[in-house]
Design a protein around this nucleic acid. Structure first.
Length: 684
DNA sequence: ATGACCAATTGA
DNA sequence: CAATTGGTCATG
């Protein structure tokens, strides 16, 4: 034991802070001797120190603390178990992350109060993952842990998790299923041989994506490793669940969804954490599932905003899974019918390879056309059904009904609040600030959403027309109109809380909002996309990417040989990409545009939101990496809050996250007003 | 968060 | 001079 030299003895001229530090040392010394004299229960013979992550919401306390392990808890207090400890005078919950022979802590250690349960619920891999996710999103580990570990359910914990039967996987059949994809069979064989290939998968229209992913999971299972597949919603979980059951039989996999209650949720979690189930499918919450010996992660349709966690620190499923793939050496598939710019970036950076089907093959499978409202129709009747549903829509539906069911996709009602010119569909904008106009009430004048100026005498800047069109054409009205046009044909609506999951082969019309499209047995005979201009008029960075994703997801439901028609502007790049079925080209172009506009994923951005004073303090406290740009702060929402946006080149992304984490720790220890920090916010 | 501690400030 | 308030630091 070497004695620390007393700084006061060597440096006569002291800063005031150092004097305080000496006083602090004296206090600490006193506390130490007090504890040393306290009566102690016998400690564990081996590894008497437990490193514990305590569940406190403070950023600057977000690290493990050492505790003494009483002999009575020596066996139970293993890494991953829940414990109760005394912390800052309070009894708090925590997780043991490791056991050690000794501690770096200079003082005496407080003992663990209690091992809540000997069930190890936090695996080493997931513990490391939560650290990486917290660092990446400048959040606290305790917030991430709440997303990763479900609440305990004591009665469920007593039940055993029956082990899965030995799987029988036909690796050859799995490779064959992917035969029409370039490199597909090789990819699947690599999974089966224990490899960790990484792919961005552009699924071709009509593909049974769930069956293909099930084959990939089965091949991974064959290699003795686990697989984790995350999809946007419960409907997709059900579809993948069914595909896995069909392929592996029951008892090999588990489906985790938000719908199941706390007991079922914990039971399924335990089946995974105990290693009784190695194939897991679920929604975004499943991204943290403690799959043992993880061999493959899959995110399907990563552009769907359901993959963005709405709770702090707002992690995205794709990012969580890609972190896992890196940390656990697993293979990865980022798949979808459409392609996000983030997926395109994975290819550009060489992190992943492309899995796709030759475009010539795709064009043989489905035909996609665009039809605009003809000038003739517009001139005759601007309000008419004809301009919204041109002649070609009716012929496509009629031809489709000869063969089977027809899907009509219509944007969600109230989906875009912006108004547009009734005649030429140009979005209506404020004359003073160019902001979008909206209606605040039924009998009021349109007003600007940005500056609030009213425009009672608005006229279209493009065509001079004075009529405005409110974009509220609900799916029920569309269904009504179609019912009149096709008498005798059953018309079904699928949207919101009335989602139709499956339809059969018999002719019918299904009117669905994006994301609520049913799957048709054998595929739809025809697909119609209405009001495409509406999705494109949205005020968002990703509106074109998002629109194309929704259209492709609908068109993909066609049967081979099916036809689709979209009503819209044939010159719009998103519709051209749809017609050519070119998700790769579109994403690459968007990606290039983002690079030149310094937007993600080429840049990393973060937002700081809160009261003006708090945001100001935060920006002062923040030591930004070079180079960085601060935009704002600007007012956001009606409650007096402001938001500042920080932008750095992607290479400085990790340093930005670190600086923001440092900011949160400094802020929390100095009791400054809270600000909300979001790294890569889902929407701006 | 919560508490301990110290220094500066206030009031009689 | 004591009582009160505010800032800083630590939490094992």
């Amino acid at each position: 034991m070497s004695q620390q030299p007393d700084p006061a003895a060597e440096q006569p001229e002291l800063l005031p802070g150092m004097v305080r530090a000496t006083a602090r040392d004296a206090r600490r010394q006193a506390a130490r001797s007090r504890q040393r004299t306290a009566a102690q229960a016998p400690l564990a013979d081996r590894a008497p120190v437990a490193q514990v992550l305590v569940d406190v919401p403070l950023a600057h306390l977000d690290r493990p603390f050492d505790y003494a392990v009483p002999a009575s808890m020596a066996d139970d207090a293993s890494p991953g178990v829940r414990v109760k400890v005394r912390f800052a005078g309070q009894d708090v919950d925590g997780y043991v992350v490791a056991r050690a022979e000794r501690s770096d802590h200079p003082g005496a250690l407080a003992p663990l109060l209690r091992v809540v349960s000997a069930e190890p619920v936090l695996s080493t891999a997931v513990a490391e993952l939560t650290a990486a996710v917290a660092a990446r999103y400048a959040g606290t580990r305790s917030d991430v842990l709440r997303l990763a570990v479900p609440p305990r359910h004591a009665t469920t914990e007593k039940e055993p998790s029956p082990p899965a039967p030995r799987p029988e996987v036909d690796l050859g059949a799995a490779a064959d299923a992917w035969a029409d994809h370039t490199h597909g069979p090789a990819f699947v064989r690599a999974l089966g041989a224990g490899g960790a290939p990484r792919a961005v998968w552009s699924a071709p229209p009509t593909a049974d994506w769930a069956a293909l992913l099930a084959q990939a999971a089965a091949a991974t299972h064959h290699s003795g490793r686990g697989a984790l597949l995350c999809v946007p919603d419960g409907k997709d979980v059900a579809r993948l669940d069914a595909a896995l059951t069909a392929l592996l039989g029951p008892g090999h996999h588990v489906a985790l969804t938000a719908e199941s209650g706390p007991s079922a949720r914990y039971r399924d979690f335990l089946a995974v954490s105990r290693g009784a189930r190695r194939v897991v499918v679920g929604t975004r919450a499943a991204a943290f599932a403690p799959v043992s010996d993880l061999g493959l992660v899959v995110v399907w349709d990563d552009g769907d905003d359901l993959h963005a966690e709405p709770r702090a620190p707002y992690p995205h499923t794709r990012e969580v899974l890609l972190l896992r793939a890196e940390q656990e050496g697993a293979a990865a598939i980022v798949g979808g019918f459409a392609r996000t710019v983030e997926a395109a970036y994975l290819l550009e950076s060489g992190w992943a390879r492309e899995l796709s089907v030759d475009r010539r093959v795709i064009r043989e499978r489905v035909q996609v056309g665009v039809t605009g409202a003809s000038d003739h129709d517009l001139a005759r009747d601007v309000h008419s059904r004809n301009s919204r549903m041109p002649h070609q829509v009716h012929t496509t539906i009629r031809a489709g009904l000869e063969i089977g069911p027809v899907l009509v996709q219509t944007p969600r009602s109230g989906y875009a609040a912006a108004l547009a010119c009734e005649r030429c569909r140009t979005p209506a904008r404020c004359r003073s600030c160019r902001g979008p106009l909206r209606l605040t009430g039924v009998a009021t004048a349109p007003a600007c959403r940005w500056c609030g100026v009213e425009e009672p005498a608005w006229a279209c800047g493009e065509c001079g027309h004075r009529g405005l069109r409110a974009p509220v054409v609900g799916d029920s009205r569309t269904a009504e109109e179609l019912g009149r046009s096709f008498p005798g044909v059953p018309v079904q609506a699928s949207s919101g809380d009335h989602v139709v999951v499956r339809v059969g082969t018999e002719p019918r019309i299904v009117v669905a909002t994006p994301g609520a499209e049913p799957v048709a047995e054998g595929g739809f005979a025809a697909v119609v996309l209405l009001d495409t201009w509406l999705a494109l008029s949205r005020e968002d960075l990703r509106s074109a990417e998002e629109a194309l994703r929704r259209w492709m997801n609908a068109v993909a439901l066609l049967r081979p040989g099916g036809r689709a028609v979209a009503v819209g502007d044939p010159h719009h790049p998103a519709l051209q990409a749809l017609v050519r079925w070119d998700p790769a080209g579109f994403a690459a172009r968007e990606s290039a545009e983002r690079v030149s506009a310094h937007l993600p994923p080429a840049s990393r951005i973060a937002s700081i939101t809160g009261d003006p004073g708090a945001v100001d303090d935060a920006l002062t406290l923040l030591s930004l990496p070079e180079p960085a740009e601060v935009l704002g702060p600007v007012a956001v929402g009606g409650d007096g809050e402001v938001r500042a946006v920080i932008r750095v080149p992607r290479a400085a992304g990790a340093r930005l996250s670190a600086a923001l984490g440092e900011l949160q720790r400094a802020r929390s220890s100095r009791k400054l007003d809270a600000v909300r920090v979001q790294v890569d916010p889902a929407s701006m």
